[in-house]
């Protein structure tokens, strides 16, 4: 099925319709591991956003020089470089967040969402469109992480972005701060999305 897309579609596609986490189920490791607060989710999203944008631009501009046989190695090399940069810069300028995220910054390298965009899009398209695609995907990732982070922080700690919501006597639902809570929350969100999708379909059919 050949698809012609406009640059605007490149941008919008990744945000919701093909949301990397909620629809494509990619990049679940960071999405589950470090989203126990909105702040952590935001820091992880920012690092990932930086890496995917830089990688997409570089890969699409160098696509002429990368032989097919070693393209995956080359993509990984590019991604790993930017991840290392992001890691060092976070450590220097946001040490508290860096400590919270720990090894998961380095693990952005193996976030298949990023590698997937290189292989599926940047290696075949112009620099500008690759950047738009990367921005869209990055925003989609950010939205998903913020949804997870918001839900988990509100119930698990009783705050949103460190602002107390329920007063001092709130009983935190500890499970949502723990890794298990990530799975539960992702399940809830996907369940909710599926439910509304079904409703919409039923409404259209009727």
């Amino acid at each position: 099925m050949p698809r012609e897309t406009t640059p605007a579609q490149d941008l919008i596609r990744g945000i919701w319709e093909e949301n990397p986490v909620l629809i494509q189920m990619l990049g679940l490791c960071p999405a589950l591991a470090v989203t126990n607060t909105v702040k952590n989710a935001l820091a992880m999203s920012a690092a990932t956003f930086f890496v995917i944008c830089c990688s997409s631009v570089l890969v699409s501009s160098c696509k002429r020089f990368i032989p097919r046989e070693v393209r995956i190695s080359a993509y990984i090399l590019v991604i790993a470089t930017f991840v290392t940069l992001a890691d060092m810069m976070l450590q220097a300028y946001a040490p508290v967040q860096h400590k919270e995220l720990g090894a998961f910054i380095a693990l952005i390298v193996v976030n298949c969402m990023i590698l997937g965009r290189q292989e599926a899009f940047s290696s075949k398209n112009t620099v500008l469109r690759s950047l738009l695609d990367a921005i869209g995907t990055g925003i989609g990732f950010t939205i998903a992480l913020l949804m997870l982070g918001g839900f988990r922080e509100i119930l698990g700690i009783g705050t949103f972005f460190d602002i107390p919501l329920f007063g001092s006597n709130f009983e935190p639902w500890v499970v949502f701060v723990l890794p298990a809570g990530g799975f539960l929350t992702l399940g809830f969100i996907i369940l909710g999305m599926g439910y509304f999708e079904e409703r919409k379909k039923a409404g259209n059919a009727a």
Partner: peptide, 8 residues
């Protein structure tokens, strides 16, 4: 080089 926007 594939034309922009089109998958090979």
């Amino acid at each position: 080089v594939t034309p922009p926007g089109a998958e090979p």
